[in-house]
Simulated assay, not measured.
Amino acid sequence: MEQNYLAPAETMQIHELLNFKTICMTSSKMMEGVVFDQELKTLFEKDVRQSITAINDLQVLLGKAPKLR
């Protein structure tokens, strides 16, 4: 059975995306408490939910990264 692994460059890019999405989610979550406009607050809540989904998907992809021995 053939195993599909990520190349080192792909692994690094996924780490960078994961860091970016984590920062975006944290910023949106913090802004939720500061914003008074309900429409804007709803957009931040939606961004947090989408970011959590993206973070979970990226973590699954990182499972394909080669393990160091």
Score class of each variant (00 low, 15 high):
Cys24Trp: 03
Asp47Met: 02
Glu45Ser: 07
Lys41Val: 03
Leu61Ala: 08
Gly33Asp: 09
Gln38Ile: 06
Ile14Ala: 03
Gln59Tyr: 06
Ser28Gly: 04
Pro8Ile: 06
Leu40Gly: 04
Thr11Ala: 11
Arg49Ser: 09
Lys29Leu: 11
Pro66Gly: 04
Leu40Asn: 06
Asn19Phe: 07
Leu40Met: 15
Leu58Thr: 03
Val35Trp: 01
Glu10Gly: 11
Ala7Tyr: 09
Glu2Asp: 11
Glu10Asn: 10
Glu10Phe: 02
Pro66Lys: 14
Ser28Glu: 03
Gln50Ala: 13
Ala54Ser: 05
Ile52Trp: 00
Lys67Trp: 04
Phe36Met: 14
Glu45Lys: 09
Thr42Ser: 14
Gly63Pro: 02
Lys29Gly: 03
Ile55Gln: 04
Lys64Gly: 03
Glu10Met: 12
Met25Ser: 09
Met12Leu: 12
Asp47Pro: 00
Leu17Lys: 08
Asp37Val: 05
Asp57Lys: 13
Phe44Leu: 08
Ser51Thr: 02
Pro66Thr: 06
Lys21Pro: 01
Arg49Tyr: 07
Gln38Val: 15
Gln38Asn: 10
Lys41Ile: 03
Lys29Ser: 08
Gln3Pro: 00
Asn4Asp: 10
Gln59Ile: 03
Lys29Ala: 14
Thr42Met: 11
Glu32Phe: 04
Gln3Cys: 12
Lys21Gln: 12
Val60Tyr: 05
Phe36Arg: 15
Ile14Gly: 01
Lys41Trp: 01
Arg69Glu: 14
Lys41Met: 05
Ala9Leu: 12
Met1Trp: 05
Gln59Phe: 02
Gln50Cys: 08
Gln13Ser: 12
Thr22Cys: 00
Ala65Trp: 00
Lys41Ala: 06
Leu43Glu: 02
Arg49Gln: 10
Asp57Arg: 08
Arg49Leu: 11
Val34His: 11
Phe44Cys: 04
Asn56Val: 06
Lys21Asp: 02
Gln59His: 10
Ala7Lys: 14
Phe44Trp: 03
Leu43Gly: 01
Asn19Ala: 13
Gln59Ala: 02
Thr11Ser: 08
Thr26Trp: 00
Met31His: 07
Ala54Asp: 10
